Simulated scan of single mutants.
Amino acid sequence: MDNKQKSLNLLGLAQRSGNLISGEALVLSSIRSQEAKVVILASDASENTVKQFLNKCEHYRIPALINFDREDISKAIGKMRTVVAITDGGFAQSLQKLQ
C-alpha cells in the first residue's frame, strides 16, 4: 500500500472517530478557532477556494495539504467534499509524516 492510500485510509479513520471536520464553512470556523491541526484541500478545488483556505491557514499557521483531488477525499470520508480539517494532533502528525 502506497503513502497516498495510507493517507486516505487515515482520513476515513479520522472521520469515523469524529476527529475530522468537513465542509467549507465548518473548516473555516475550525481554522479561526485553531481547532484544526491540518487542512486537506482538493487539488481540483476552485482557484478562489484554494486561495481563501491557503491564506487562512498561513495566517493562523495551520499546515495545508493539497495532495488529493475531490474524488479521493470524497471516497475516503464517504461525503462529497473539497476541504476537510483534522482536529486531532495524532492523526494530523501521522498524515503529515506520510506526505
Rank of each mutant, 00 (worst) to 15 (best):
I31M: 11
G12P: 04
G90T: 13
Q96D: 04
S7V: 09
S33W: 03
N3Q: 12
F91C: 04
D44E: 08
G78L: 09
G18L: 07
D88S: 15
T82A: 03
V38M: 03
E35P: 00
N55Q: 14
A42G: 13
D2N: 14
Q96Y: 07
D69H: 13
N48A: 08
D2Q: 08
M80Y: 09
R81L: 03
I73A: 00
I31E: 06
L95D: 03
I31H: 01
R70S: 13
L54Q: 14
H59W: 06
L20S: 11
K37Q: 14
V83D: 04
V83A: 03
K51V: 07
G23Q: 07
K75N: 07
E47G: 05
R70Y: 04
A64S: 14
M1I: 04
D72F: 07
T49L: 15
C57G: 05
L54P: 00
H59G: 00
A42F: 04
A76M: 11
L20R: 06
R16C: 06
S7T: 10
Q96N: 11
G78A: 07
N55L: 10
S29P: 01
I77C: 08
N19P: 00
L20W: 05
E24K: 14
S94Q: 15
T82L: 04
R70C: 13
D72V: 07
I86S: 02
A64K: 01
V83N: 01
K97N: 11
M80A: 12
C57Q: 08
G23E: 08
L65A: 11
Y60H: 11
K51H: 14
L65C: 10
I31S: 02
A45Q: 03
E35F: 04
K51Y: 06
F53P: 03
V84I: 15
R61S: 11
S74Y: 06
N3L: 09
L11W: 05
T49G: 03
D69Q: 06
A45S: 15
V39Y: 02
L54R: 12
Q93E: 12
E24N: 11
S94E: 13
E58W: 00
D69N: 14
N3M: 10
L54A: 02
I62P: 05
I77V: 15
S74P: 10
G12M: 03
M1P: 00
I73S: 09
G23L: 01
E71G: 01
M80C: 06
V83S: 02
C57A: 14
D72G: 01
V38W: 09
N3A: 13
I21Y: 05
V84P: 08
